[in-house]
Nucleic acid binder design. Structure first.
Length: 462
RNA sequence: GCCCUCAUGGUGUAGCGGUUAGCACGCCAGCCUUUCACGCUGGUAGCGAGAGUUCGAUUCUCUCUGGGGGUACCA
């Protein structure tokens, strides 16, 4: 089995594209086949080297490694042109100056469901003009029907009468998409073309090109498209529509891979959390759903939380650190590796994305936040009284670790006969500046006695 | 308009002629609890509609309705 992912570098890698890449990758890795990368850069206006690099980056981040070097489609132009010439020589294609209006007029005359035929149409250019490169090259569509052998939707039949003679090359001889893909997949020995459903309607054209070349067609698998929460085609307007955005939002690549795999594919045993290596073993393209799926960020969040909590501390610290650096907070934690490690450890259970770490635990590095409501509620007169007692207790705790802080404070609560939260919350607000933080004992221990007392004093004064 | 295509709760799915229609997210409630979470328990909600086929349709066929994609000298 040899498959490929063929993005066009006209922007960031979209989650739909990422899913197509993932399915291709899963097929290849699950079968011992090859996963190739081809950059469809024939749209020279919109294709940029930056976009290519971004896409490769996104793929790397997701852990979807490809075989061999990425191939640029434009490097095959000679071959494409040669095929066009052969088609012309064999009269399987012809040159025509037909415009959109000509095609419309043709349909008005012959019926809306009749494909345009320019072989003996007035717009067909003369032999002399053709030799001078006048007119776009159109492929002759033969009679009969074209069937797409599709692994996810079964065979799809297109009656050739409905198809227009497709333009396969511009007047200047430069190849067009439907010709180029067909040839490139053929030359690369691609056995399965797995791509988005938006390509389904184009497939018969590509099949016709192959047929004209006397070549054999690959098998196809057209994936249903991904929609946004509003049911419309997923686009930039939907927030996290690109892999880059997912990454910035603090999602873990493994969680994204797991989520995407399940978006449109389900195994018989219906599991939700499936690690990558299991995915590789179990993924079956034939079981991919036929209906379009909505990208549900809430479920991704949940799944990400599961992965995040299951992650080893070292890996999570590395992920958090990388994310902080990208977010511009790198300097805040530089040189404080031990504290960072502790902070991550005590935050792991409370965050669902890497992005949530800083808002939750940043106070350990920068000082208390400034949540007025929290202060008003938990640092009023009666609570300060408790806090003063807390200070006194804490000053005598030794060693100053979670266990001892915990024991001492609980004893204090019992002693004073008050509700636990009336003692713990003021301390939390004193340390974190807000009512939400990692465990208060853990936080105090992480800060150390000196800093803890300093912040408590500050709260007592303020 | 024309061509192709899809249809199980709000969302993603399991099901492949006979099930109390399963799982997960979400939502609601309770428990746990120093906040927030996590976790646990329970609950809410579904086979788009109409004809067939059949002893029996969520499952097979057709129609309708609704959704999606395509319809470029873009990819």
């Amino acid at each position: 089995m040899r498959v490929r992912f063929a993005p066009s570098p006209t922007g960031l890698l979209h989650v739909g594209g990422a899913r197509a890449a993932l399915y291709n990758w899963l097929m290849a890795r699950g079968s011992g086949g090859e996963f190739l990368l081809r950059i469809e850069d024939t749209d020279r206006e919109r294709s940029t080297p930056e976009n290519i690099e971004q896409i490769l980056d996104a793929l790397r981040w997701l852990g979807l490694d490809w075989d061999g070097e990425p191939v640029l489609q434009t490097t095959h132009e000679e071959r494409h042109r040669a095929v066009v010439q052969t088609l012309l020589d064999e009269d399987k294609a012809y040159r025509s100056t037909a415009t959109a209006e000509d095609v419309k007029a043709f349909k008005a005359e012959h019926g809306a469901d009749r494909g345009f035929r320019g072989g003996d149409h007035p717009t067909r250019v003369s032999a002399e003009d053709a030799a001078r490169g006048v007119g776009a090259v159109r492929l002759r569509v033969p009679e009969g029907e074209t069937v797409v052998r599709d692994l996810v939707r079964g065979d799809t039949t297109f009656k050739n009468v409905h198809l227009d003679d497709p333009v396969v090359a511009r007047a200047d001889g430069s190849p067009l998409y439907n010709l180029a893909v067909a040839i490139d997949d053929l030359d690369a020995g691609i056995t399965h073309v797995v791509r988005g459903e938006d390509h389904l309607s184009n497939t018969p054209k590509q099949l016709l090109v192959l047929q004209a070349m006397g070549a054999e067609a690959p098998l196809y698998a057209h994936l249903p498209l991904l929609h946004g929460p509003d049911g419309k085609k997923l686009s930039k307007r939907h927030g996290a529509a690109s892999v880059q955005e997912l990454r910035d939002a603090g999602y873990l690549p493994d969680a994204v891979v797991n989520y995407l795999a399940l978006l449109g594919w389900g195994d018989v045993d219906d599991e939700t959390e499936i690690p990558r290596d299991e995915l590789v073993k179990r993924f079956d393209i034939a079981r991919v759903s036929k209906n379009p799926a909505r990208f549900d960020e809430q479920k991704l969040r949940w799944l990400n939380g599961r992965y995040l909590r299951a992650q080893g501390l070292d890996a999570l610290v590395a992920a958090v650190q990388g994310h902080l650096i990208e977010a511009g907070h790198g300097h805040m934690v530089a040189g404080k590796e031990d504290l960072l490690r502790t902070a991550v450890e005590i935050s792991q259970e409370k965050i669902t994305t890497v992005d949530e770490f800083w808002p939750l635990a940043g106070f350990l590095f920068t000082g208390p936040a400034d949540d007025l409501q929290a202060r008003e509620k938990w640092l009023d007169e009666p609570h300060r009284e408790h806090l003063a007692a807390v200070r006194e207790t804490l000053a005598g705790v030794d060693p100053f670790d979670t266990e001892h802080v915990d024991a001492a404070l609980r004893a204090l609560v019992g002693e004073r006969g008050v509700k636990a939260k009336d003692v713990f919350q003021p301390l939390r607000v004193a340390l974190a500046g807000r009512a939400i933080s990692p465990g208060v004992f853990e936080s105090a221990a992480a800060l150390g006695r000196e800093e803890t007392l300093r912040r408590v004093d500050l709260a007592l004064e303020g």
